[in-house]
Design a binder for these strands. Sequence first.
DNA 1: CTACGATGTAAAGTAAGCTTGACTTAAAGT
DNA 2: ACTTTAAGTCAAGCTTACTTTACATCGTAG
Lengths: 69, 69
Amino acid sequence: MKNRLKVLRAERDWTQADLADKLEVSRQTINAIEKGKYDPSLPLAFKVARLFEMPIEAIFEDETEVEVS
Amino acid sequence: MKNRLKVLRAERDWTQADLADKLEVSRQTINAIEKGKYDPSLPLAFKVARLFEMPIEAIFEDETEVEVS
DNA sequence: CTACGATGTAAAGTAAGCTTGACTTAAAGT
DNA sequence: ACTTTAAGTCAAGCTTACTTTACATCGTAG
């Protein structure tokens, strides 16, 4: 799952620690999500969307393959 | 996290097992999500949204409390 | 050169998401 | 009565999300 966290952060001049604070998670969690180590939980994704005031789909991009049938 | 899965399913006359098959998860997972036992992962939420062709926010409703500051 | 802030990464632990298998209950059909 | 189907639930086990602590790297400012 790709995401635009790094860019959205840069636009606001926030560090990973800043964002982590605002979302109430650890700095390592932000780092891991940005680096694609894992995806956020749905509740965290909602929190991110609310913080940046945009839909989840505008921040996270699904890459799940479509069934070949 | 509330969700409209049961209604969306009913509109299409799908059983929990039907939906589970389409989403490639177990029937128990659908049941647990519908009953609010836990939230789906973000990838699964995307899959649900894609299946029903609507934004995640139109299916799942966040209830996380807003910070009192 | 040293110090500092931001980022990256790792290990170990807990919690949440999901699986399979099994069993129960209720509704509906025969 | 018996069978079938949908829904609900539980237990054990695995994987993923997240935590804390700790340390390494890099750029920049003094």
